[in-house]
Design a binder for these strands. Structure first.
Lengths: 226, 226
DNA sequence: TAGATTGTTAATCGATTAACAATC
DNA sequence: TAGATTGTTAATCGATTAACAATC
């Protein structure tokens, strides 16, 4: 694992797909794969795959290809999937519940250690194996447990308030499902936004303007389950 | 509204943000805005905004800027947000519930007309104002009501089975939250994938490799609530 | 009119693809 | 060895940014 500098987000966003696909192959018992085979299954070019992987190191062998297990492990390391970053989730609505379950059964580098809400309906219920706490206990909790990441499954206005509190408590990483733009206010944070509305509106555009051009622009976003 | 050919996905994916932001301005009572002002608020260049908008028409006035209300309406039309495409949702788990509520209060071009699940726990419950039906009634329902879009909030294997059924029933548009790759099998479909796992793994990478380069690559993805 | 800001063309930048020497 | 496939450099393509004439 050499280089690792100036890796563009275009490359980084393809890594999870590589990982997932390789993991699937590994489980299936495939031990070896060439960039060409991989490219066909992923709908990318072999060239791109080799370029991408070589941002991180030379994991293949000329004339042979890549060892599936080894490459999968390398990407796992690159992504930092065994980091177990301590994480809290704010907002125990349907989305929060879905995310909490999702995160608990997908060991993807994070460890959910607390869930908070301000609604009496939700406080005390269990989600993702954790009891929902009153948001009034957030500060003490953070000072004691020192989470480094927060998932925001709350409204825009709640997100705005919470971002300030969490930032002041030292949290710099956010998985943000709200419309509030954390990054604008706090440029030294790492924010991954999930904008469901945008995705849906984009789909609406694509359906409404169902021209060949619109369709062919979109790369097939292939996925393999893990 | 002229041109509308060869509009790249890069442009299309920015439209929802423009729309949301302009809508917010409109509500706030702002009537006029220049590309420069807009660019500052969105973290884009003025040039890019003008380029993007001019894919669809010349909506501005030299020396003046853009009329917020008019531009907002135009983008609304471009996106097709009043289409009310008849939509069904498959999978009434937490994610399905969250999505159903989301879609019902966001009039974003779709009209949810049915929700299906195969679990006796869920059948008969209400989500997003609709009663969850047994998936055994899916075929009859589709033949009668003719939905054109399906939201898949189910597991990979269920998605694989359902995609076939839905495709055979004539559905060609999917909002896909599963890992199953519909587009690979059915290339004449329009699929918008939401890959929560990928998003989370990308965040894990960014935290693990928290270099300046990794951070600056990512454009601030600013959002404004609507 | 003068100032401002668009629409659009040209220049730059970055990402993808092609090609091929290195080498297993 | 011969065949295959990588790692990497060069060429191409597309998207973003800069510049400026048009014009409100």
């Amino acid at each position: 694992m050499h280089k690792r500098e100036n890796v563009s987000m275009s490359v980084v966003r393809r890594l999870p797909r590589y990982y997932r696909f390789l993991h699937h192959l590994k489980v299936t018992g495939v031990t070896r794969i060439s960039s060409t085979e991989l490219s066909k299954k992923l709908g990318l070019t072999a060239s791109q795959i080799r370029q991408d992987l070589n941002c991180f190191g030379g994991f293949g062998q000329q004339g042979y290809g890549y060892m599936v297990g080894q490459l999968c492990d390398e990407i796992c390391k690159i992504l930092g999937l065994s980091s177990g970053y301590k994480t809290i989730l704010l907002g125990a609505g349907n989305l929060g519940r879905a995310i909490a379950n999702h995160m608990s059964f997908q060991a993807e580098g994070f460890q959910l250690i607390g869930v908070f809400d301000n609604s009496p309906d939700k406080i005390g219920t269990t989600i993702g194996g954790l009891t929902v706490s009153d948001v009034s206990g957030l500060e003490d909790f953070c000072k004691e447990r020192l989470p480094i990441m927060a998932v925001l499954c709350v409204s825009r206005s709640a997100a705005e308030q919470l971002a300030k509190i969490l930032y002041d408590l030292g949290i710099r990483n956010f998985w943000n499902f709200s419309h509030y733009d954390i990054y604008l206010k706090y440029p030294d944070t790492t924010v991954e936004n999930v904008h469901l509305n945008d995705s849906l509106m984009t789909l609406c555009y694509r359906i409404s303007n169902n021209s060949i051009s619109a369709k062919k622009e979109e790369k097939p976003e292939q996925q393999i389950s893990d």
